[in-house]
Amino acid sequence: QVALSRTQVCGILREELFQGDAFHQSDTHIFIIMGASGDLAKKKIYPTIWWLFRDGLLPENTFIVGYARSRLTVADIRKQSEPFFKATPEEKLKLEDFFARNSYVAGQYDDAASYQRLNSHMNALHLGSQANRLFYLALPPTVYEAVTKNIHESCMSQIGWNRIIVEKPFGRDLQSSDRLSNHISSLFREDQIYRIDHYLGKEMVQNLMVLRFANRIFGPIWNRDNIACVILTFKEPFGTEGRGGYFDEFGIIRDVMQNHLLQMLCLVAMEKPASTNSDDVRDEKVKVLKCISEVQANNVVLGQYVGNPDGEGEATKGYLDDPTVPRGSTTATFAAVVLYVENERWDGVPFILRCGKALNERKAEVRLQFHDVAGDIFHQQCKRNELVIRVQPNEAVYTKMMTKKPGMFFNPEESELDLTYGNRYKNVKLPDAYERLILDVFCGSQMHFVRSDELREAWRIFTPLLHQIELEKPKPIPYIYGSRGPTEADELMKRVGFQYEGTYKWVNPHKL
């Protein structure tokens, strides 16, 4: 086992960053958080920038500027975001240094004079007029057009580079997404736009490419001749908990499936790229999406959770019991969808996408189930092999396979070949997804960000279904809070070829 401390991990990262040409360590950078008073800024962006600063992973002359409508001070920003920093008493001095680099400007999102004030403020910072500028839009999409237009007109660096990070949702359907994309691309070049999907920053999602293309053993079996089906799962054990009003506007397909799960599907299904260059990788992902037809209604199961009468606390409440959810809402909190990649490698292999709230566990994984062994000599005792990439929690890679049961006879039983990170790298604290992705933006690497043509294809696949749901308002199937979801989803999976045995229990190697 390799035991690495946080300091050692960050030392390795620093070495990698400083050796590259793309990370300008000594240049002045300004990180501007648009929507600095909001939840995302408070819980994710400010803490992430602090962790990067604490670990010495930001360029040395980096300033952080918050911008929002609320009249706040840096002290206010500190008060609301610091509880999420997880700072230790030993880091007190470092924390003071961090907040000394912070400033805040209040202004409207659609007022040109406010942006001119913001620009004057940035120019007044040390070497601010020639600094590289990175704008993070932690804002609702309704203000994107006004904000990007004003940034472009008043706040661009004339000497350094300018980059803009856009948070999902990128529209509600193909038409609104196209409108937003066309607007942003009329102001910024594609190499300046970073559409963030934080799932692409997760260690195991990034590991998929290495697993596939750096190991000879997987190449020959990664196709329709050997793989019976692919299941991509995202499960949350909690409901909307008072935030249903926002969720109800989008629903589970827009929230998770059309982005996170579809991105994971691309990494499983794509061909080997010409290189690890950002556009070479994204070219292959677009090719996969172009091979997927629009979702067919007979390959869809929609569910909505109801309270568990035997549960406790939140578990007793259904989705419609959330006071922020519109009365009688038919918005799905669970969806199972089957897609097919219609190309030579994957023809006929079902890709089953499942996601839901208020389920029995927290889990995100990719599961490849292989065909049955031909010419069975073990009297149907063999179960199908599976390769599982567990994204969260407890990152893991393992192969479910058959071995001989101890004893006199040739009785096979299920076991696993474990390729888990935790076994080799004991207690290594890896940077989280937002840390990686923000560092990628500083480096100018777009590999783990969504390109406009990729986004367009993703919406093309799901828009007809979303429009049909909005028009017909089908009643989702009720499922109990804390269950596996509607049984109809299991029946759909069985119908397209997935075999669920229920006889195997994964042993978490992190707890051995």
Rank of each mutant, 00 (worst) to 15 (best):
Q258E: 06
Q258D: 04
Q258S: 14
N259S: 10
H260L: 15
L262K: 01
Q263I: 03
L265D: 01
L265W: 00
L267A: 14
L267K: 04
A269Y: 01
M270E: 01
K272V: 12
A274K: 07
A274S: 12
T276L: 09
T276M: 08
T276N: 06
S278V: 06
D279G: 06
D280Q: 07
E284R: 05
E284F: 03
E284T: 04
E284W: 02
V288M: 07
V288W: 02
V288C: 13
L289Q: 02
K290W: 02
E294L: 05
Q296A: 09
Q296L: 13
A297E: 10
A297R: 12
N298P: 09
N298Y: 11
N299I: 03
N299K: 05
V300L: 09
V300G: 03
L302Q: 07
L302S: 03
Q304N: 01
Y305L: 00
V306L: 08
G307F: 03
G307E: 06
N308M: 11
E312A: 08
E312V: 07
E312L: 10
G313V: 15
G313A: 10
G313M: 08
E314W: 08
E314I: 11
E314R: 07
A315W: 06
A315M: 15
A315C: 12
A315V: 11
T316Y: 13
T316P: 14
T316E: 10
K317Q: 10
D321Q: 10
D321Y: 08
D322Q: 06
D322L: 09
T324E: 13
V325C: 03
P326I: 06
P326T: 13
R327I: 10
G328W: 05
T330C: 05
T330S: 11
T331L: 02
T333K: 01
F334G: 02
V338Q: 10
V341H: 01
V341P: 02
E342H: 08
N343F: 02
E344H: 11
E344K: 12
G348H: 08
F351T: 01
F351H: 00
I352T: 01
R354T: 10
R354K: 12
G356A: 00
K357W: 11
K357G: 03
A358D: 00
A358K: 00
L359A: 04
N360T: 05
E361R: 13
R362L: 08
R362I: 12
K363H: 14
K363G: 11
A364P: 01
A364R: 11
E365N: 03
E365W: 00
E365F: 02
V366K: 01
Q369Y: 09
Q369A: 11
F370W: 09
F370T: 04
F370S: 01
V373P: 13
A374E: 13
G375S: 15
G375R: 12
D376K: 13
D376F: 07
Q381K: 13
C382P: 10
C382A: 10
C382V: 15
R384F: 08
E386T: 07
V388Q: 07
I389Q: 00
R390W: 04
Q392M: 13
Q392K: 13
P393Q: 06
V397I: 12
K400C: 15
M401P: 03
T403D: 05
T403W: 13
K404I: 15
K404A: 15
K405G: 15
P406S: 11
M408H: 09
F409W: 12
F409D: 12
F410H: 03
N411T: 09
P412C: 15
D418K: 07
L419K: 03
T420M: 13
T420G: 15
T420F: 15
T420L: 14
Y421T: 15
Y421Q: 15
N423G: 11
N423W: 08
N423Y: 08
N423P: 13
R424T: 09
R424E: 13
Y425D: 15
Y425K: 14
K426Q: 15
N427Q: 14
K429S: 13
D432H: 11
A433R: 14
Y434K: 10
Y434D: 13
R436N: 10
R436E: 15
L437P: 12
L437V: 15
I438Q: 00
I438L: 14
L439N: 04
V441E: 00
C443V: 13
S445P: 05
Q446A: 12
M447A: 13
H448A: 15
H448L: 15
R451N: 07
R451P: 02
S452P: 02
L455T: 04
R456N: 09
R460Y: 01
T463L: 08
T463R: 08
L465D: 01
L466R: 01
H467E: 09
E470V: 05
K473W: 07
P474E: 11
P474G: 12
P478N: 06
Y479F: 00
I480R: 12
Y481K: 11
G482K: 05
R484D: 14
R484H: 15
R484Q: 13
G485C: 05
G485H: 01
G485K: 02
P486N: 00
T487C: 11
D490S: 13
E491N: 10
E491A: 06
M493T: 07
M493C: 13
K494V: 07
R495A: 11
V496P: 11
G497F: 14
F498M: 11
Q499N: 11
Y500A: 14
Y500Q: 15
Y500D: 15
E501L: 02
G502R: 12
T503M: 13
K505E: 13
W506P: 15
V507C: 09
N508T: 09
N508V: 12
P509H: 07
H510V: 14
H510W: 11
K511Q: 13
